[in-house]
Simulated scan of single mutants.
Amino acid sequence: MITIRHAQDRGHANFGWLDSHHTFSFGSYYDPKHMGFSDLRVINDDSVTPGAGFETHGHKDMEILSLVLQGTIAHKDSAGNIKELPAGEYQLMSAGKGIYHSEFNASKTDRLKFLQIWIQPNQLGGQPGYQQKEFSQAQGFTTIITPDGKDGTLHIKQNMQLIQLILEDQQQATWQADSNRHYYVHVIEGELSLGDGITVKPGDGAKIENVSEINVERLSEKRVKALLFDLV
């Protein structure tokens, strides 16, 4: 079963310096029908004006993933990490028993666009953690996050995986699924078919349940980039 969440139906908040679209309930946007999916709690599609950003604020017991789509994030946290996160790299911060951090647009001239994603952990407390890595832009599926950090992936406190999908020259790909697990696709760029006449575009999401495989197909000449969440 596939349930589509269209980009135009997401929550929206505009504070001038920040323009954000919320796949799930967040901040002042509340919809009891969209509170998350399995342990996936937040997908915020954020656009930040030059030099602006999120002042120092706290998190606890949450796995927080950032993926920059355009520009660079200037990151600073209470664990002593002072980093820059450029477009294409993945950052995973484990809040653990508590951490404070700030995120700013590192540019004084260009907008910053990034995805902020929250995963609810299956282990509470513990020391905060920070990981950052650039992954291959290879065609097909590339595993980014796993529970144990195998094969150079980022490790997360949850029984889930994050998989990057890129289709450029390649037209189709298939992910072998487990019918007992839940899957969520978020499209970043391009137009993608999920079969049975179902099409998803940038900003769209799809809940996928009770399937043994996920078949995807690029529908135009434009490159497709998407995220596939493999959840309990």
Rank of each mutant, 00 (worst) to 15 (best):
M1C: 12
G11Q: 01
L18Y: 04
T23R: 00
S25P: 02
S28T: 11
K33W: 02
K33R: 09
M35L: 10
L40N: 03
R41Q: 03
R41M: 05
V42P: 02
S47P: 10
S47A: 13
V48I: 13
G53Y: 01
E55S: 13
K60F: 00
S66K: 03
Q70G: 06
T72F: 00
I73C: 08
S78H: 07
N81D: 14
I82W: 06
K83R: 14
M93A: 06
H101Q: 07
S102C: 04
S102I: 05
F104C: 08
A106K: 04
R111T: 13
L112N: 01
L115G: 08
Q116G: 05
I119Y: 08
P121T: 13
P121Q: 08
P121S: 13
Q123E: 14
S136V: 12
A138E: 15
F141C: 10
F141I: 12
F141V: 11
T146A: 14
D151A: 15
T153D: 12
T153Y: 12
L154A: 07
L154G: 03
H155W: 15
K157L: 14
L162E: 08
L167G: 03
A173Y: 07
T174D: 13
T174S: 15
S179Q: 15
N180H: 14
N180M: 13
Y184H: 12
V185Q: 02
H186V: 05
I188N: 07
E189H: 07
V200L: 02
A206T: 00
A206R: 00
A206M: 00
I208H: 05
V211R: 11
E213C: 15
N215C: 14
E217W: 05
R218S: 03
R218G: 02
L219Q: 13
S220W: 02
V224G: 00
F229Y: 12
